[in-house]
Each structure stands twice: as C-alpha cells, then as structure tokens.
Simulated scan of single mutants.
Amino acid sequence: MNRNMPAAVQDRALQIAHHEMGHYVMARALGFSTGGVTLSVTMDLRHQGGASITLARPITSMEALTTYLEARMMVLMAGAMGQTLSSKQVSGSHVDKSKAVAILKGAQGAEQDYAKVKELQHLLRNITCQETDSTSSERIAAELKAMTDHVWTRAQKIIDDLADTITELALLLVERMVIVEQWGRSADTYEVVFTREMLERLPAVRAVPVLSVCM
C-alpha cells in the first residue's frame, strides 16, 4: 500500500476504489465499453471517484431494451456491492448484502446510483408488466420488488465471482495515488487517474469475462 498516506485516508480511498472498480468490472463483464477510472481523497476524507462507461448501445427490439435496462441497473448496483468487499484479504471476499443495500440507499456517495436504479426499475416494470392496473399500488410494489430482487441476485453473483479482480484493481488504484494541490488548498488531496489505455494493459482487466445479462 501507499506508506505515505495517513491510515484514515487510505481506508477511505480503499472503500471508494472498491466502489468504482465494482462499477468498472461489472460494466466490462456485461459488454459496455469502458474508459478510465479516477479517485481523489482529501485529508479531511472528502472524496470524488468515477468510472467512465459508454452507455451508447443499439436498441433494435423490446427484448434488447429490457436486457439493456437490466444490465444498466446491475452496473449501478455493483458500486455499492464492490464497496463491501474486504481489503484485508485478496482471495475469498464476498458481498455483504445488508451493508451494500445500506450504502446504496444511504448518504455515502451512492445516492445518485440509487436514484437512477429507482427510475430504471419503474421503466422496466412498465415495459414488462403492461397488463397491471396503474392504480393497483400493492401489485406494482410486488412486481418492482420481484424484479429488483432478481436483478440484484444476478449482479451479486457476478461481483462475488469477480471479487478478487475488483480487489486487485482497487489496491492497485490506491497504491498509485499521489498527493497534489486541489480545491483551493495546497497539497491536501491524494489522487490517481487510470486512463482507458492504462487499464486495458492490465492482465486483471484483460481477464474479465464477457457475460450475458440473461443468466
């Protein structure tokens, strides 16, 4: 690890690195084009992170649309799932479901992911459950839950299967962080930028399997 980084900053950086690499690895596994990954953490533990994902994809049928929506939901869920993976052990780490749900629904930086998931949930339900009476709130709620549970289970299996890859990439991301001047303060921020080209040269990235969303 980065020995010059304060322990609290390092812990926060590892959490966010796992989050962003969760998004990144899930996106690659589901066939989205991916770009770079960025991460910055200040001494007072504010953070910014991002995984660049190209959402453009041909939609030529209703089946393709539902598959795309499911895949996009899985990518959004993957950040919170990845964030729960253990940084202490490289092998055998698995998603903590209750913690992942709390991260996704809480105010820990994943609230935008959750807002997008909720919008896509309703859009997907509107497409796949067209016969449902729009005034039947109980049935709509049940359909949303069943659909979301199904997508979550598939996403969690992928993150569990690729946990070692996510953890390896997260550790590498944090190891490369350097302190810089940012946000109007002098040298109080650790940051790193992995470009698309840098990532795609890594054996761990090249080994990510391309999976079908319809598992």
Rank of each mutant, 00 (worst) to 15 (best):
E143P: 00
I159E: 00
T165I: 10
L169T: 06
V151D: 11
L171K: 11
I158N: 00
A155L: 04
A163N: 05
R139A: 12
E138H: 11
T165W: 00
K157P: 01
D161S: 14
V174R: 01
S136P: 01
L171S: 10
T165M: 05
I140W: 11
I158Y: 00
I159C: 03
S136G: 07
L144F: 07
M147Y: 04
D164H: 14
A146N: 11
V174E: 06
S136A: 15
A170P: 01
A146D: 12
I166S: 04
L171C: 10
M147T: 12
V151K: 06
E143W: 04
S137I: 14
D149W: 06
I166Y: 04
I159Y: 01
L172T: 08
D160Y: 04
A170S: 15
L172S: 13
V151P: 00
Q156D: 04
A146K: 14
L169I: 09
L162V: 02
A163Y: 02
D149N: 12
D164Q: 15
V174A: 07
L169H: 06
A142P: 00
I166G: 02
D160F: 05
L144C: 05
K145A: 14
T165E: 06
T153F: 12
W152P: 03
K157Y: 08
A142K: 10
E138T: 11
L162M: 04
A155S: 12
A163S: 15
L173T: 14
A141E: 14
E143H: 08
I140Y: 02
D161E: 14
T148E: 15
R139Y: 13
A146I: 09
D164G: 13
L144K: 02
A146C: 05
D161I: 03
T148D: 15
A155P: 00
S137M: 15
V174W: 01
R154G: 11
I140H: 02
L171I: 10
E168N: 15
I166W: 03
T167H: 01
M147W: 03
D161K: 10
L173H: 07
L162T: 02
D160N: 13
V174T: 08
E143R: 08
A170D: 03
L162A: 02
A142M: 09
A155C: 14
S137R: 14
